[in-house]
Design a protein around this nucleic acid. Structure first.
Length: 741
DNA sequence: AAAAAAC
């Protein structure tokens, strides 16, 4: 693998940007109000590099991005940058422009485009389609590190069109109907044959279906249409064991806590109560604040919140909103009592023995999961039984397969003997908080589904609807997406959720937060009555109460005993720094081999940092909500493929995103919430691998940080750090050092 | 306050 960054000996070694070119960002920022200096791009329509005049260039886009609203962040970041650069005046504006203009034309026009077209073009396109196309696509979920044919053309990526080429199967190429369904690609002729044929039939599901849909339901008669009827019945059917087992174990789960200095409990509650209006979180938090030791004891009181939400939701929401503005206390919700699964217990368990069919088991093995992880062993059975399940498994513990595999199996069983009809309505829905996560989940579930002849499709925003709608028209079994577009299509009458019998909420606690809760509720009300609900998260807690109380029936709760974040393979560190050193320390930290993920609090700062690193000769890209989806997808892919070593992201990347081999996570801004800390940290140390998380804070933030780490139940040493300190060398991995954590 | 999520 090529180095992700320039062969720099050190950040400051050579002040000349190795690319000579400045990113469009720099230009844009340097002359804020000014029109773009123009980007390399051919004027001739036939040329690969052709860019229409009116086409939004990266330049234009970036400029727009710097709305007045974001100036604060920009200026702040600028200040930091200029500070860091004082020692390297060499990079004056005078140098750069000159260089970049002269270089760019030549390089970008002659070298870059051509390079890609000459060297790979034919090859890469041919490779993919033929032969291995399918396996690869499917496996990419786990084979992230694999050299990517796509990432080979980073620059080309500036061009929108290309990015779609990069991921042909699932992207929007409206034109080719076959492409509409990635999976269809894999199955050559027959799928095409099937569909066309079905065209003869009334293509419209709406006309046919109405009647049919009622007929279908009977199937699920086991669960009468009426929710109310169902519930009681169900709960009775189920063994009471979940009640018996849960309480006991859950208390045992957090013994570690006791080991900790008691003082922390005293500090925390006191402080938070004093500094912050106690009233602010009457409903939930305040009480749980702090010690989980005491939580069990307080549980009875705390649970009140759960009961209250259901009956009085709107009040609660309004209340919560008001409170959220009052202060930003890091809320610690009570942990749900869970039936803990002992890792040892699942030693001999196989996917087959859990009830999954051979095809699925085979695909799982292909995906790199020959035998179930604890959380999978725990949840697959109950899910197949049709139970509503809540599951907590730490980051990187295999939650996607834990719900994905049984979901496919269940849908398959429910359709046994029936024919896959054109325009059939989706039977399962998986909801995720970000598009990237939805995409990723699909990459895992799709191959599983395909192995048994089921189709999945992604429904998320930021990309044209046409493909998604086209897929729905043909008929898909499993939908994976984000709330906004799903609601949008539903409202447009293009998506009928009435036959969805299984709903999964990944990152369920996050989906229960303010901006997400109501959309989630609306969506959940649209699915089939009595549909099975599965809620998963590494930080599942009572925050999901509002959803649980309204939509789940006698849910079983699972977690893996002793498996929490701090028992993992992550080395947590906190660097206490001077604010003025921040930029340089960050640059020093990311100047390393390996994959580094940097978290920033705002989009503007994320963008700024990425540019700063690039300036220093460390190739970096950004990921945040201000980028269009093509760029988001591409930039993430660049890190995944190893094409770039540093990704600077907002919390859009905090949850769920899996990239192999991220061995360092840097929090340029400390998170406000302990859950955010846990999720960001969880981008490294996945599946048993080791990783380091470094959080930069200023002196005055120490106390807040201590409190937050306490809530997160993470032990991390605080160390003072200044520019050039050895600890930076150690953390960056440039220098060997004894690991004392 | 920020981020995410539709157009």
């Amino acid at each position: 693998m090529p180095k992700n960054k320039k062969p720099a000996g050190g950040r400051a070694q050579n002040f000349e940007p190795r690319y000579g070119k400045k990113t469009p960002y720099q230009d844009a920022k340097r002359r804020p109000g000014q029109a773009s200096a123009g980007k390399p791009g051919s004027k001739s329509p036939g040329h690969r590099g052709y860019r229409a005049a009116d086409e939004a260039t990266p330049h234009a886009e970036k400029k727009q991005r710097w709305s007045a609203q974001e100036k604060a962040g920009r200026d702040e970041a600028r200040g930091i940058r200029s500070h860091a650069r004082t020692d390297r005046p060499a990079r004056s504006y005078d140098d750069r422009p000159a260089r970049s203009y002269s270089d760019r034309p030549t390089r970008s026009f002659d070298d870059r485009p051509r390079r890609s077209s000459d060297d790979r073009p034919a090859r890469s396109f041919d490779d993919r389609p033929r032969g291995e196309r399918q396996p690869r696509d499917d496996r990419r979920t786990f084979g992230d590190a694999r050299p990517s044919y796509r990432a080979d053309r980073p620059r080309t990526n500036d061009r929108p069109a290309r990015s779609f080429d990069d991921r042909p199967r699932r992207d929007d190429r409206p034109a080719r109907s076959y492409d509409d369904r990635p999976r269809t690609n894999d199955r050559p002729a027959r799928s095409f044959d099937d569909r066309p044929r079905r065209d003869d039939r009334p293509a419209r599901s709406n006309s046919d279906r109405p009647a049919r849909s009622y007929d279908d339901r009977p199937r699920r008669d086991d669960r009468p249409a009426r929710t109310y009827n169902d519930r009681p019945v169900r709960s009775n059917d189920r063994p009471a064991r979940s009640y018996d087992d849960r309480p006991r174990r859950s208390f045992d789960d957090r013994p570690r806590r006791d080991d900790r200095p008691v003082r922390s409990f005293d500090d925390r509650p006191a402080r938070s109560n004093n500094d912050r209006p106690a009233r602010s979180f009457d409903d939930r938090p305040r009480r749980e604040h702090g010690d989980r030791d005491r939580r069990p004891a307080r549980a009875a009181g705390a649970v009140v919140a759960g009961g209250a939400y259901a009956g009085n939701r709107s009040d609660w929401n309004a209340d919560a909103k008001a409170k959220a503005h009052q202060d930003h206390v890091d809320v610690v919700h009570e942990k749900l009592q869970a039936e803990a699964v002992q890792a040892e217990e699942v030693a001999g368990v196989t996917f087959s023995s859990l009830g999954l069919g051979d095809n699925i088991v085979r695909v799982l093995a292909d995906l790199g999961a020959p035998s179930p992880f604890p959380i999978q062993a725990a949840t697959i059975g109950p899910i197949l039984e049709g139970k509503d399940v809540l599951a907590r498994g730490r980051t990187g513990s295999g939650k996607t397969i834990a719900f994905g595999a049984p979901l496919v199996e269940s849908i398959l069983r429910s359709q046994a003997g029936t024919r896959r009809e054109f325009g059939r309505k989706p039977r399962a829905l998986v909801l995720a908080p970000t598009r990237e996560l939805a995409l990723q989940i699909d990459r895992t579930i799709q191959p599983i589904a395909r192995s048994v002849g089921l189709f999945t499709t992604q429904i998320y925003g930021g990309v044209p609807q046409a493909r998604q709608v086209g897929a729905l028209k043909k008929g898909v079994d499993i939908i994976i997406g984000t709330p906004g577009r799903i609601e949008d299509l539903q409202e447009q009458g293009k998506l009928d959720l009435s036959e969805v019998s299984i709903v999964v909420l990944d990152e369920a606690d996050h989906m229960s937060e303010l901006g997400f809760l109501e959309p989630m509720q609306r969506i959940l009300r649209l699915v089939e009555d009595g549909a099975q609900k599965l809620l998963f998260s590494a930080t599942l807690d009572r925050e999901v109460a509002a959803l649980v109380d309204e939509f789940l029936v006698d849910p079983a709760v699972y977690e893996v005993a002793g498996e929490d974040q701090d028992s993992g393979t992550i080395n947590h560190r906190v660097l206490v720094i001077d604010h003025r050193d921040k930029a340089e320390i960050l640059t020093s930290l990311v100047d390393r081999p390996g994959k580094t993920l940097v978290f920033a609090r705002t989009r503007a700062y994320a963008e700024m940092l990425a540019e700063q690193f690039d300036d220093a000769g460390i190739h970096a890209v950004a990921l945040h909500g201000d980028l269009n989806q093509a760029k988001r997808t591409r930039n993430l892919e660049r890190l995944t493929s190893g094409r770039v070593g540093v990704l600077v992201a907002t919390d859009v990347a905090a949850r769920g995103i899996h990239v192999d081999d991220i061995d360092l996570v840097i929090q340029a801004d400390a998170p406000d919430e302990y859950k955010t800390y846990l999720h960001r940290s969880g981008r490294t140390g996945r599946a048993g691998r080791s990783g380091t998380v470094v959080t930069l804070i200023t002196r005055q933030r120490r106390r807040r940080m201590t409190e937050m780490l306490d809530r997160a139940e993470i032990d991390a040493p605080f160390e003072d750090a200044r520019i050039g300190d050895d600890v930076l060398e150690e953390l960056s991995g440039r220098q060997l050092a004894d690991v004392d954590a």
